[in-house]
Amino acid sequence: MHCLWCYEEIIPNLNWQNIFTLFKPRSLCEPCEVRLSKLVGSRCRRCSRMSAVRICKDCEWWEKRLGGDVLTCNHSIYAYNDFMQDVIAKWKYRGDYQLGQIFKQPLIDAFSSLFVNKEVVIVPVPLSEERTLERGFNQAKVLADFLPDSSMEVLKRVHGEKQSKKSRNERIFTNNPFILTRPIEKPVLLVDDIYTTGTTIRHAAGLLRKHGTPKVYSFTLIRG
């Protein structure tokens, strides 16, 4: 096995603590693995960011602005740091598809401890068609496909305008970029790679809720 990031050979160091878990295949070597920063400790109940208060300021703002949040809660695994930024850039923008494997096991582990007994329909957040063609894959769909339950692609993104250049306020007031191809009357779990301002997720969640979805959760790799 070689590390997906640095290509160094992964030499398992065997000891009595890990002898039974050793056979979980690893995609990153130890030194690369530790550069990812997992979210730990006290978190915002709504958006998963590390926070001393139950509901963070941003989420309170959403609550007020939407008159009750359309998102029940988000769960993320990692914090955003320089290393993660490099990994995501290479994976998404350069199109190094295989790098997604890094997140497979952590995603499955988190999913099985959080959502497995909740009856949810998994819905990946879509990319526009042109962007999917350009990159060759939708990273959210790749993540959703790692999960043990199958997913449903019921959302479409109508225009693929890059959002990152706009200010937060502009982003919030732009039109909803999604359309719903089929309403879902069960709780939905949205899957995406990153939760930054929470706008994208709430656009999708709002649309689902409007068409009869009772609860919308989201599962994102990174809380940006």
Binding site: K90, R94, G95, D96, Y97, Q98, T132, L133, G136, F137
Partner: peptide
């Protein structure tokens, strides 16, 4: 390997020079 959106097949791509475009 990568699934190709155009050919609907799985293809091989080079990771070594991916910084210069896939």
């Amino acid at each position: 390997d990568i699934p190709c959106q155009l050919c609907h097949k799985t293809h091989v791509y080079c990771r070594n020079c991916i910084e210069m475009g896939r």
